[in-house]
Structure formats: C-alpha cells, structure tokens
Design a binder for these strands. Sequence first.
DNA 1: CGGTATCCCCTACGATACTG
DNA 2: CAGTATCGTAGGGGATACCG
Lengths: 114, 114
Amino acid sequence: MGKAYTPATAAADVETVFKRLGGRWKLLILFHLFGGQVQRYSDLERLMPGISPKMLAQQLRQLEHDGIVARQVYPEVPPKVEYRLTDWGQALCPALDALLRWDAARDVDAAVAD
Amino acid sequence: MGKAYTPATAAADVETVFKRLGGRWKLLILFHLFGGQVQRYSDLERLMPGISPKMLAQQLRQLEHDGIVARQVYPEVPPKVEYRLTDWGQALCPALDALLRWDAARDVDAAVAD
DNA sequence: CGGTATCCCCTACGATACTG
DNA sequence: CAGTATCGTAGGGGATACCG
C-alpha cells in the first residue's frame, strides 16, 4: 500500500524534491545526463555556455550528495572526472515527463474551456 | 505525436513549472485545494499557521495569474472570496504524485543497491 | 473579511582570480 | 583538467502596520 499524506506532508515532500532539483543549472545538467549519458566536467562546461566553474562544481556536488548523480575520478594526469546518473536519478525521467505533459496541456485546457 | 525537446528546452520548460509552483507556500495551498475543495481566504489563513496576509495574497495572485487557481468574489458585506483549482490546476495532481513516488523510491533503490 | 504598503534581511547566484 | 576562494549583488521572503 502507499504512503499516507496530509496536505502538509505532501507539500513538504514535494518541496524537498523541488529543493533537490531547484538549483539554477541542475535541470540542465540532468537533461544532459538522461538516457545513460556520461559526461566529463569539461563536456558539461562546453554544453552549458555561461556557467561559471564555481556554479558547475557546486551544482554537481549537491546532486552527488543527494544521490542523483554519480562522480567517478580516474587517477590520471591530466585529471579525468566523469559524471552520470544513478539509477534513482535516471528514475526522475518519467516524473519530469509528467510535469512537461502538464505544462503542454495548458493551451489544450484553455481551448476546451472556450 | 509529442513535442520535440532538446536538453535546453526541456530544462527550461521544467524550470518554468518549478517557478510557477515554487513559491514558499504555493504547494501547501494546492494540496489544500486538490480534489475539488473550495476554501475562503480566511480558511487558508487558518489552515496555514505562520503565513502572513501579504504572502497568502501574493501566492494566490500568482497562482491565479498562472491559471492554476480560480478566484471568486461574492459582492456581500462582509466580503467573501473563494478559491478553487482550475481544471488545469487539478491536472497537476498526477504529476506531483509522480514526484512523490520518485521521492519515496529513494530508500527502495538504496536497499536494492546493497 | 480580505486584503495593501513598507521596511529589512538572507541567501542563491554571478564574476573573477587562483591552485593541485 | 578540474576544480576552490573571495567578493559583490538582486529579489524572494518575513514582520508589522494600515485600509475599503
């Protein structure tokens, strides 16, 4: 059976999710990793024009801390670090899809309301 | 067929959703209106201890502007104002459910990983 | 009853310079 | 290559007082 929610606990849990994904660049990072993609730090820097090294590192650290992104360091010279989604992180995809479908339904609903 | 997304557009669209729902009290308001519930301004104030009148009014105005909440004024003395979800707002429920199920799956995935 | 108006604060974000 | 350290800023949020 499912978990029991009150309005307060449901709202708090969704807010927790929002905080985990809510950084300025986190969603963009996620969408560059969905589908099993693996990216190096410099790949992400190139894929996200305008991001500063501080922000990229910070957002990646938080995603890693939250168990969404996995970080793998290769002890080489020069350094090489790869980022990919954890299984749980990959499981976000259908949930974000549901939000995108809701967003896309805005116009549909408005048309029906006419 | 569905809409075509690049990482950048998908991330931008989800961020738009996050901004629409991301206010400090908006989710709590939504969860007090899901399922066709209708609440007066003073009901919401009572249901959300700690919220200031400024914040309640502001969050409601933004939700109304975004087409998620409908506001109905009864021209009576004393004043009476009711809030409910629009059809589109009500359609948020399954999407937020998907996020809650993802959140609840965190421990499950961690256990499997052992 | 159902709101505005005002003031203050905090923190997420950004630019820049530097390092193992 | 893959990051820290430091400084500066804008706006979202909160307390409080007042209004139609």
